[in-house]
Design a protein around this nucleic acid. Sequence first.
DNA 1: TTTTGTTAAGAAAGCGTTTTCTTAATTCAG
DNA 2: CTGAATTAAGAAAACGCTTTCTTAACAAAA
Lengths: 334, 334
Amino acid sequence: MAVTIADIAADAKVSVPTVSRVINGAGTVSEELRERVIRSVEKMNYKPNAAARSLITKRSDVIAVVEADITNPVTARILWEIDACCMKHNKIMLTCNYDSSNEKAIFLLDKLLERHVDGLIFMGVHLDEPLLAKLREFSCPVILAQQGVESGECEFTTVTDDSYHAARDVTDFLIQEGHRRIAYIGGDANDYTNGKLRLQGYLNAMEENGLEVPASYIRQEQFSIEGGHQGMKEIYENNLKLPSAVVCGSDMIAVGAIRFLKSVDLSVPKDISVFGFDDAVSDIFEIPLSTVRSCKRGEILCEQLFKKQEEQGKKEWIYYPYQVLRRNSTRRHQ
Amino acid sequence: MAVTIADIAADAKVSVPTVSRVINGAGTVSEELRERVIRSVEKMNYKPNAAARSLITKRSDVIAVVEADITNPVTARILWEIDACCMKHNKIMLTCNYDSSNEKAIFLLDKLLERHVDGLIFMGVHLDEPLLAKLREFSCPVILAQQGVESGECEFTTVTDDSYHAARDVTDFLIQEGHRRIAYIGGDANDYTNGKLRLQGYLNAMEENGLEVPASYIRQEQFSIEGGHQGMKEIYENNLKLPSAVVCGSDMIAVGAIRFLKSVDLSVPKDISVFGFDDAVSDIFEIPLSTVRSCKRGEILCEQLFKKQEEQGKKEWIYYPYQVLRRNSTRRHQ
DNA sequence: TTTTGTTAAGAAAGCGTTTTCTTAATTCAG
DNA sequence: CTGAATTAAGAAAACGCTTTCTTAACAAAA
């Protein structure tokens, strides 16, 4: 059997509450007893039982993160950041994959409810009503990452990329660099808020600069290499005048686009500049990709999670700061 | 306040143990009461408190996975697989990053000890004595993934890639394909058991086929793109007769090697064949990489974890089955 | 002195379950 | 029928902590 607080109390010849006080640094206990307790704790290698403690304190020191797909490099990176922050706050991170199945997500959330986690970060898209209802059941702080609820007021604090402004900045940047014919390949904008906002940012930047956008310059495919490939192919086949630059809704799309361009002997960035989004492939892709990187995601998420203790009430929509990274998949256009 | 088992008992007009029996499907309870209980549970949206349950059952339904780096794609993929298996067994996966710092790993393991997890998978390299000592403290099944302890008898059940045989097979395969001058670029073999075994497999295959291996054909760098780049560079610069094929200790190394070759205008696989390891970059890398893929990792790990309940005693070293995948970074040599 | 206030530490209650122990009710063999 | 065996369900204990309540000891103020 594991050693319990009573064993320590007996060994140190003090009462159980005294041991508890020493361990938690709460209450007052004389130097003499404190030392005796600490000695016993070390001697017997005592570890407080988290379940017993949790039962009474109503905390678990666990932060849950539910994500669609842990193998997505962007997700994995954010998890890494969250984990690092949790560590600092003496919390432990519990992650669950929901495989983009809201049904599975609800199943998982039920499990987490039983566990009385101290905080929940839900990194998901396709938020539907049953899912939101389940999220409402949590009494701990809940944060939506990746996708907000469009409807208006924030029911949950939401933290996402600043897709709209970033897409505008990227497009502006390309225009500054002399590009005039700029196309866009994004993901499905019906479901993905990010997709919608990126497209909007691109469109607004073009419009504000008085630039024409033929419908054939806009493609909405999948957020994947295949999607990018397909989108670029369609643009290539349906336009006599090719764009000199393409804004992509994700790095994966950019990779696919570049791969297609290579297949028809067009060179990037010599013939066409390609801009990505997410900074997900920087270290492995053959071309250093110009892209947008969101910063301090883990910190911002955790900060929201922990800050809320005081300011429970205020739910807001927060954006990660971002950097527009100009690398070698784009160049000036003359 | 959350609704408790007592609330359900009161609402259903039964005793607390009866509710417990219904929920756990244990013991005997009449159809009538069972229905009353179920109705109350649903009506009041009751969720049993995991901490209270865990306190008494000494189980937590949590499987802990401690890994060096969650952003490593190979790791992320295995986590995905483990999570899927845990789900099937009605367990929840708790993951912690230890950032390749054994000190941090020990800190995390202490936290997990407090939590009385039902199983532990430690995916790490550089296992040193303090770390092993900490692992011994667990009373639940502990599995070492990724690296075993060389010493001999298995203190912990260990599951790893079958690096030795796979490297032999890869080398054999290249020899069958007509290659005679085959080089090897691996990671640091002092620390990484996998590195050591892959090198050994390569060497044995060469020897058994009566093929010469000049020392300048063997490089041990980092398990990274830079490492592969550097290793290939050295081989290129130090050999008048270049190899016709290179066995790499990881896909990252292979990517680096290919990148170097491209930089000196050598074509893969036309001029040189390159074989990777891990199947980590298949979808994004420019060349479909011939590589080794380990299979069913999640299943095998979980199977070991859960099987052990009965056969606690037997610790063994188990290998994932693997496939040698011939793709387009290698070709026959005439 | 006596009273009041303060502090250190123990006693006891309680957190929400499961499990063991009892009891009452029912069935069945003799 | 009676007594033993079986069954369904409640009472009570236990899990390992934290927290509240209480007491004893002592110091400071009247």
